[in-house]
Design a protein around this nucleic acid. Structure first.
Lengths: 330, 330
DNA sequence: CTGTTAGCGCGTTCAA
DNA sequence: TTGAACGCGCTAACAG
């Protein structure tokens, strides 16, 4: 294995000079620099990342901690992060917490132990993990959710507005009793989307009816259960706003099984796209999120934070868009 | 930051002894060992992974290089890998090559430079990258595809058999002209699935008709194009076997747009599930792959390879299963 | 502008 | 069984 010493001696300079050339230090005699570069090429030298990590006490790794790798929302987001990371010479360590606080804690601990250069996290647990990251001064970007009060860079979508658009759309399409299936109470996104739903009802002059709201688990099975339960209400709904993509799939399934005709007798709008929304019959109206851009934005925020560790934390909020398709217009 | 020296001096032993205790060396006086452990707990010592990496010249990281993070096949697979990795104390670095040989080469180079403990790869390029990995003695498992001839641990599914089952099913369901949309010629899986298709035709006493075969790109757009093109044939098919999940989505879309009635006038079977196969109308018949288990198998193979670097490379082949749903039976 | 040198924190040889 | 001491390869003071 060829080391920096080999290069130095062969080029007739010190290791310090080689290091300076390699790291683009300004003050090196051009003649020396090009000699060093020639030797580097000649010997095929590549610097040992492990030694460098130890010396600098940090790596070129980013941890991306997400809560469900099975959700297309996150895979698209990860792709956005990864594209920016690669341009900047970073690698992405993918960590799937499965909405499990213990797993999440383990990943945060690992990220700290391995001195990762940054963390992008969609927190499933309470604020403890985030606080730990902030305290350790690890560059951190929180994505999709707000947790705790520690000042930290954050990337969100406009959940409330998106939910409001969706619900309003159902009302103006003539549905009379619009239900809502939202996520776990403890989750930021679930609360915000429910709030948007309520705001739309209010603006539409419709009374809020508690029996038309369900808190499920953001997964397919939860959506299915919630929908079934809604259908057994004494005064069942004739439309539903479902607060995430996987639950929408479940809800749709329950409706199909119950032989409910969509959109004639029942309107459906989901939050967040599913890749095959256009294939489902009827095609699915959704509030689409700029998932890939969300990832890119988070990555860029992380880069800026690394560049200037002392800048005030900022929050980027991206817009959602209502994609009207077949399931909500009769 | 608390180092091994702090622990050593506080416990009144040398760093060598602390190191031995930490790494479970056999020959340490139990009394000393427990004293050391007490101090470790007291000081909250955690050993510096970076220094350890340098010393051992390796990390606890696995690189998983896949060719399309947008494909549910790979996300499920990654989850399988990750679950095993975590149990064994490894982290997974996710690398998305996008079927781009240059990107793949860059990731392989990075994995080598960072001395990753192992690589699991679904190769998009020719054999060069794999050879490099094998030559460097990096524990490597190839997944989903066979490339080149270097001896290396491999995990596959029974592509040919699955394709044969699918095609045979269409024939026995009464379709007369079964087409095939397969992947890029250079890809192993595309070739194998096409071979299975041909085998089924042969067994069914049906002549192979070149005009009913298309080579597309394993993506949705490619499947859509291929299907459209098939429909314009002078003697168009009345059924199709599509050799991967995303292309099936595209093909389905093309059929729907052309107002073809499925399954009455046209039968469809896809290779590899899509998560929402049951939601598509009609629900989609597929050859399902044990994607999660594929990931687990690869990870276990990697662990065994690390344990015994000299064992002969082995190939694990997992079974596929025909999931008959609505799109193939009239 | 360049070279010398001292660690980063750990695992491990060698001698006791 | 234990400890002293070295070196993994690199970067960054500091001195020149």
């Amino acid at each position: 294995m060829v080391t920096i010493y080999d290069v130095a001696s062969r080029a007739g300079v010190s290791t310090a000079t080689v290091s300076r050339v390699l790291n683009g230090a300004s003050t090196v005699d051009p003649a020396l620099a090009s000699r060093v570069r020639a030797v580097v090429a000649e010997l095929g030298y590549e610097r040992n990342a492990l030694a460098r990590n130890l010396r600098l006490s940090s790596t070129k790794l980013w941890a991306v901690i997400i809560s469900d790798i099975g959700n297309p929302f996150f895979t698209s987001l990860v792709r956005g992060v990864e594209d920016v990371a690669q341009e900047a010479g970073h690698s992405v360590v993918l960590c799937n917490s499965d909405e499990d606080a213990a797993k999440e804690a383990a990943y945060i601990k690992a990220a700290l132990a391995d001195r990762m250069a940054g963390v992008i996290i969609s927190p499933s647990a309470r604020a403890a993990g985030i606080n730990q990251l902030v305290k350790s001064a690890t560059p951190t970007v929180v994505i999709d959710r707000v947790v705790g009060t520690a000042p930290v860079d954050t990337v969100l979508v406009d959940n409330e507005h998106g939910a409001e658009l969706a619900t309003e759309h159902l009302i103006t399409s003539g549905y009379r009793r619009v239900a809502c299936v939202t996520g776990p109470r403890r989750l930021f996104t679930a609360a915000r989307r429910l709030r948007g739903y309520r705001a739309a009802l209010r603006r539409g002059g419709v009374d809020y009816d508690e029996t038309l709201v369900r808190y499920a688990d953001f997964r397919e099975a939860g959506g299915r259960e919630a929908m079934r339960s809604l259908l057994t209400e004494e005064h069942p709904p004739d439309a539903v706003f479902v607060a995430n993509n996987l639950m929408t799939v479940g809800a749709l399934d329950a409706l199909v099984q119950a032989d409910v005709r969509i959109p004639k007798d029942f309107g459906v709008v989901g939050f967040d796209d599913i890749p095959w929304a256009h294939l489902v019959r009827p095609s699915l109206t959704t509030v689409s999120q700029p998932t890939y851009d969300l990832g890119r934005a988070a990555a860029r925020l992380l880069l800026e934070r690394v560049r200037d560790p002392h800048r005030a934390p900022s929050t980027v909020k991206l817009k959602t868009r209502l994609q009207v398709r077949g399931s909500s217009t009769r």
